[in-house]
């Protein structure tokens, strides 16, 4: 059996540094030593098989125990690809977000805004054979977070994705087009490359939405890809 093929190097500026001074919580939590780069072994190149049998899907966050959540109903859809443009089928995507007023269904969230009892804010979907996914939700609200003077997070949805190798693991946030809070947000702006930031913003897509029912937004995820050329010795 041949050795696992290496992953493509991270494009400069495309990932946020762990030391991101504008985001206060990073100060005491970012490692100060550089990580040690290793050549991928089976450990990094394989990933758990996550299936709907063990991890049931729930693709409609807009209804909780039969009751409709308040707010602007949305459909989010797109594809999961790797850096070589290949679709990632059967990819598990976990989704979590605030309700339309900017409250999380979580005891630590003490923001003084009405909590929607019909919005729990948790979802889970799997991509199909073509790497496509889709879910229904409510557009999340902005909320304050005390990072700096009058700090508010822009509207966003959190995602967690598993690829075919554990090295592809991705946790990220999706933002909405035209949000005036984006230029002020240190989490979004921790990504140095403007193109990489723009790719965290979904696009309004009238083909994703449903007439007289919900607006649609398109968002594609890209997981790390394998290098076609043999990796150099990392030592």
């Amino acid at each position: 059996m041949s050795d696992p093929v290496g992953y493509l190097p991270v494009a400069p500026g495309s990932q946020p540094p762990l030391d991101s001074p504008g985001y206060g919580s990073t100060h005491k939590r970012h490692p100060k030593q550089a990580p040690i780069r290793i050549a991928p072994t089976l450990t990094e190149s394989l990933a758990p098989k996550l299936t709907e049998r063990d991890y049931p899907a729930f693709a409609d966050l807009s209804v909780h125990e039969g009751h409709q959540a308040q707010g602007e109903r949305i459909i989010v859809g797109g594809r999961v690809l790797d850096e070589n443009g290949r679709p990632v089928p059967h990819c598990m995507i976990e989704i979590w977000q605030a309700c339309s007023t900017g409250r999380y269904h979580h005891p630590l969230d003490t923001h003084d805004a009405p909590m929607d009892p019909n919005f729990k804010g948790e979802g889970r979907v799997f991509t199909d054979e073509n790497g496509a996914y889709r879910f229904v939700s409510i557009k999340p609200g902005a909320y304050p977070w005390r990072n700096h003077r009058n700090a508010w997070r822009p509207n966003h949805i959190h995602y967690s994705l598993f690829g075919t190798g554990f090295a592809q693991r991705l946790v990220t946030q999706m933002y909405f087009p035209g949000d005036p809070l984006l230029p002020l947000d240190p989490v979004f702006n921790a990504v140095a490359d403007a193109g990489a930031r723009d790719r965290l913003i979904c696009g309004l897509d009238m083909d994703v939405g449903r007439e007289e029912w919900a607006l649609g937004y398109r968002f594609d995820f890209v997981l790390r890809g394998r290098d076609a050329t043999p990796m150099e010795n990392p030592q």
């Binding site: 493509l8 991270v10 494009a11 495309s14 990932q15 946020p16 985001y23 919580s25 690809l81 790797d82 850096e83 070589n84 443009g85 976990e94 989704i95 979590w96 605030a98 999380y104 269904h105 979580h106 630590l108 969230d109 729990k120 804010g121 948790e122 889970r124 959190h158 967690s160 991705l170 946790v171 990220t172 946030q173 989490v187 979004f188 921790a190 990504v191 193109g195 990489a196 930031r197 790719r199 965290l200 995820f221 890209v222 997981l223 790390r224 890809g225 076609a228």
Partner: peptide, 20 residues
């Protein structure tokens, strides 16, 4: 040749327990 660039990570934040 790479055609796409991997999506930027963003912090998991304090409220990930929604998927706990």
């Amino acid at each position: 040749m790479s055609k796409l660039v991997a999506t930027a990570a963003q912090t998991i934040g304090p409220y990930w327990a929604l998927i706990e």
